[in-house]
Amino acid sequence: MNSLLSSKRLRWLAALIVIFNGAAPALWILLTSLKGEAELTQLPITYLPQAPTMVNFVHAFADQPLLTFLYNSAVVATLSTISSLFVSTLAAYAIARLRLRFRNAILTCIIAVSMFPLVTLMVPLFEIMRGLGLLNTYWALVLPYTVLNLPICTLMLVSFFQDIPRDIENAAMLDGCTRIGALWGIVMPLAAPGVFTAAIIAFVNAWDEFLLSLSMNSAVAYRTLPVGIQLYQGEFSFPWPIVSAALVVALVPVLILVMVFQEKVVSGLTSGGLKG
């Protein structure tokens, strides 16, 4: 009994540490965005805003084209998520259902590719995009983000497809449904938690990515949020309250997305595991 209580306490402690680690920075950014420059630099430190103000949000939209950055990030993240899901769904279904001779080797290669540091891919990706004439376009980010998200999306979907009984698809195909029709009409709805989870992971990865966005698109009109926010920094100053306000704006779409699909994401993250 005592060991059971100790185990529960440890789980609660671990959960609280994880929650604090994720929530504390976001809360601090929110509080900073509501402070004036003078209050932010005064001593002793004030943790709660003494005179909350929304002027930092006004400056965030007025000093830089924040709406343009939001739009660019939304377009790039949405297109790359859709393309990643489409390709990874076909790949995962083939791995899970077809009798591939080197299936385990393919899975090993997918895992190995996902471990490559992004910085090692920067030069070849840049040269490819320049050769295709895609620099300073949305596609200069959509195509690399699609490729970078494929391993995690494929691995996640493979585990869900393996958990779906083959008899359901076989019955549909006996009634005249094609294999592709069975995939989109039967398997995909049953694997909805995994699909939503993979989609949100791909979306957040594209939404937060900085290095590729900085390298591929130098034109302000095509910059995404992570790169655009750095433009608030001056040569000899860093307006933390304004930057914090811009960061809060950047966090809102992701928070809404996760809140709307919370149940499916939790179900997707806790269901099953990759089978050999």
Rank of each mutant, 00 (worst) to 15 (best):
T89W: 05
K264F: 11
V119W: 10
T270A: 01
L13W: 13
M54K: 11
A14D: 11
E263F: 12
R97I: 02
F161K: 01
I106C: 05
V243L: 11
L13M: 15
L143G: 02
F61Y: 09
Q262M: 12
T108I: 12
R179K: 13
L135D: 00
P226W: 03
R97C: 00
L174I: 15
N136E: 05
A202I: 06
E235L: 11
V187W: 10
R9Q: 15
I186P: 11
N104D: 10
T46H: 15
S213G: 14
P52Y: 00
T89R: 11
V258I: 14
D63N: 12
V204A: 08
G228M: 00
A171L: 10
Y47K: 06
Y222P: 02
F116T: 12
D175C: 04
W184D: 12
A112W: 06
A94L: 01
S83P: 07
M173D: 03
V195R: 05
Q162W: 04
M122K: 02
I128Y: 05
L190Y: 08
L30I: 15
S114Y: 04
L43N: 11
L30G: 10
L67V: 08
S83I: 11
I82G: 13
S218A: 12
I45R: 03
L79P: 09
A91I: 03
V113C: 01
L214S: 14
W207V: 03
E37N: 11
V147H: 06
I168A: 07
L13A: 14
